[in-house]
């Protein structure tokens, strides 16, 4: 029975690759896209953190200088 399904009256040689290869290509495209996306998202979050830290420090400095100028 399994052989019948694989063989498909002699057309299995054509039918199976025509499903397996395209789906494999689709899966590879998905994985590659996912990899790039997660890499970029991580970098993005890091950059935002760095930027917000810089902003925070900048504000801190301003506040300190303000305090200093008051005293």
């Amino acid at each position: 029975m399994i052989i019948d399904i694989l063989n498909l009256n002699g057309h299995g040689v054509f039918v199976w690759p025509s499903f397996i290869f395209p789906l494999l290509v689709c899966y590879i495209l998905f994985l590659r896209t996912k990899k790039t996306l997660s890499k970029l998202e991580k970098e993005n979050i890091k950059e935002i953190k760095i930027l917000s830290q810089q902003k925070f420090e900048h504000i801190k400095k301003q506040k300190i200088s303000l305090l200093n100028s008051k005293t």
Binding site: F30, T33, K34, L37, E41, N44, E47
Partner: peptide, 17 residues
Amino acid sequence: ALIFLMKYRIETIRVKK
């Protein structure tokens, strides 16, 4: 649609960067 949305996010992040 799935690949499109993922690619769209990639391109948006690239533009932001």
